[in-house]
Simulated scan of single mutants.
Amino acid sequence: MEYLSAKEVAEKWDISRRRVQILCEEGRIQGAFKFSYIWLIPMDAEKPADRRKTKKEANE
């Protein structure tokens, strides 16, 4: 299995690198793990749903 760094995933998903790191820390990206100081994310990982949008839609 091939892995991407948080920076590469951030570019792929069009979000910040820090946001990808937070998603990894929260366990929201399946298969992601930390190797030394770098997050490694499976190449075929799916972007988690943005919870902020779900809450906003629920209030409408």
Rank of each mutant, 00 (worst) to 15 (best):
Met1Phe: 12
Glu2Thr: 15
Glu2Arg: 15
Tyr3Ala: 00
Tyr3His: 02
Leu4Pro: 00
Ser5Tyr: 09
Ser5Ala: 02
Ser5Ile: 03
Ser5Asn: 10
Ser5His: 02
Ser5Cys: 03
Ala6Gln: 11
Ala6His: 05
Lys7Ser: 04
Glu8Gln: 13
Glu8Asn: 06
Glu8Thr: 05
Glu8Lys: 09
Val9Asn: 00
Ala10Val: 10
Ala10Phe: 12
Ala10Ile: 08
Ala10Leu: 12
Ala10Thr: 07
Ala10Gly: 06
Glu11Arg: 15
Lys12Tyr: 06
Trp13Gln: 05
Asp14Pro: 03
Asp14Phe: 01
Asp14His: 10
Ile15Cys: 02
Ile15Val: 14
Ser16Cys: 12
Ser16Val: 08
Ser16Phe: 11
Arg17Asp: 05
Arg17His: 10
Arg17Gln: 14
Arg18Ser: 11
Arg18Trp: 14
Arg19Val: 00
Val20Asn: 01
Val20Trp: 01
Val20Ala: 03
Gln21Thr: 08
Gln21Phe: 01
Ile22Thr: 02
Ile22Gln: 08
Ile22Cys: 01
Ile22Leu: 05
Leu23Thr: 07
Leu23Pro: 05
Leu23Lys: 04
Cys24Asp: 06
Cys24Glu: 05
Glu25Val: 03
Glu25Leu: 07
Glu25Ala: 07
Glu26Pro: 01
Glu26Ser: 04
Glu26Asp: 13
Gly27Met: 09
Gly27Asp: 11
Arg28Ala: 14
Arg28Gly: 13
Arg28His: 13
Ile29Asp: 03
Ile29Pro: 01
Ile29Ser: 05
Ile29Tyr: 04
Gln30Thr: 14
Gln30Pro: 04
Gly31Lys: 08
Gly31Tyr: 06
Phe33Tyr: 11
Phe33Thr: 03
Phe33Pro: 01
Lys34Thr: 04
Lys34Arg: 15
Lys34Trp: 02
Phe35Gly: 01
Phe35Asp: 11
Phe35Pro: 00
Ser36Leu: 08
Ile38Gln: 09
Ile38Ser: 10
Ile38Glu: 12
Ile38Ala: 07
Ile38Lys: 10
Ile38Phe: 02
Trp39Tyr: 11
Trp39Leu: 00
Leu40Ala: 08
Leu40Val: 01
Leu40Lys: 09
Ile41Tyr: 07
Pro42Tyr: 06
Pro42Met: 12
Met43Glu: 10
Met43Leu: 06
Met43Phe: 04
Asp44Met: 06
Asp44Val: 07
Asp44Ser: 06
Asp44Arg: 07
Ala45Leu: 03
Ala45Arg: 03
Glu46Asn: 11
Lys47Val: 12
Pro48Val: 07
Pro48Met: 08
Pro48Thr: 12
Ala49Cys: 00
Ala49Met: 08
Ala49Trp: 00
Asp50Leu: 10
Asp50Val: 06
Arg51Lys: 13
Arg51Met: 13
Arg51Leu: 15
Thr54Gly: 04
Thr54Leu: 13
Lys55Ser: 14
Lys55Gly: 05
Lys55Glu: 14
Lys55Arg: 14
Lys56His: 05
Lys56Ala: 09
Lys56Trp: 04
Lys56Leu: 10
Glu57Val: 15
Glu57His: 09
Ala58Thr: 10
Asn59Lys: 15
Asn59Thr: 15
Asn59Arg: 15
Asn59Tyr: 15
Glu60Met: 09
Glu60Thr: 12
Glu60Arg: 15
